[in-house]
């Protein structure tokens, strides 16, 4: 911007401030500072940057969808590890994992940084009571984050899905009061089904503050050896961001899963 334009803009802003008060006009940077939303970082800086709240929101529901080997479970595990820790990096909070399909791998969780002593693994049977259990756990106000792995296990059962839909409103209030972050892992739906609200997770999506879709894009090899893959996280819904920004991510398999954004 030229100096003249900048001066004109500044004088206009000053005039507005004098007439309507300092809250009337603010720069984008100032607005970002004020609107600090309680959140938990995922550990993927590029993903955190597009969500609009610097991570996944506390006190709200987030939907994370993606096909198998898209990186969604890695994001979920890193998110659990991050949720357990305070700002010094010490384990200070308890989290829960609803392992609905009974395939949680403790070895993998540890490699992602999750402290198993502060992780409650919940393996309910496929009954409507499982949804009540989620609400009751959140209501205890002792959990900082809960991951549901994965939502289709509930939605394929008519009785459970009906109970879930009926509980969503109450669940949101419980999350808000407890300041607990809820992350539900889901399979992706074709855009046209989402558009027409024909997908099973539509009602959950409607109640989610954030919806992210993960997609694996490319295998990463070095000298013919697979070393990881590149994925793309796309924001399909956010209470704080307009549009559908996306973020590239790289997930590597070098013994421990390392997360770093592509640059």
């Amino acid at each position: 911007m030229s100096a003249t334009k900048r001066r004109r803009l500044e004088s206009a802003v000053t005039a507005i401030h004098e007439r309507y008060g300092p809250q009337a006009v603010r720069t984008g940077a100032e607005f970002r500072q004020v609107a600090a939303i309680p959140h938990i970082a995922t550990g993927f800086a590029a993903l955190d940057a597009i969500t609009g709240c610097q991570g996944l929101p506390m006190g709200a529901l987030t939907l994370l969808s993606g096909r198998t080997t898209s990186g969604k479970l890695t994001v979920a595990c890193k998110f659990l590890a991050s949720a357990q820790r305070d700002q010094r990096g010490d384990v200070a909070h308890t989290v829960a994992l609803f392992d609905l399909n009974r395939t949680a791998d403790p070895d993998y969780l540890v490699r992602c940084g999750v402290d198993l002593d502060a992780l409650l693994v919940v393996r309910p049977s496929l009954q409507p009571q499982a949804v009540d259990l989620l609400g009751d756990l959140v209501q205890q106000r002792r959990l900082r984050a809960v991951v549901i792995d994965c939502l289709p296990d509930w939605l394929t059962n008519r009785a459970v899905s009906r109970r879930l839909y009926a509980s969503l409103g109450r669940l949101q209030t419980q999350l808000r009061v407890a300041q607990c972050a809820l992350l539900m892992l889901d399979d992706p739906s074709p855009p046209w089904r989402r558009w027409l609200n024909l997908d099973k997770s539509g009602r959950v999506r409607w109640n989610a503050a954030l919806h992210i879709e993960m997609r694996r894009e490319q295998w990463l090899t070095e000298s013919g050896v697979l070393k990881g893959y590149r994925a793309q996280a796309r924001l399909l819904k956010s209470q704080w961001v307009y549009g559908f920004p996306s973020a590239p991510m790289e997930i590597r398999f070098n013994g421990t899963v390392k997360a770093r954004e592509t640059w």
């Binding site: 949680a104 403790p106 198993l116 002593d117 409650l120 393996r123 049977s125 009571q129 259990l133």
Partner: peptide, 12 residues
Amino acid sequence: ERYGAVFFQAQQ
């Protein structure tokens, strides 16, 4: 009591 034995701790 209400939900039964559904709570587990993972251990290495």
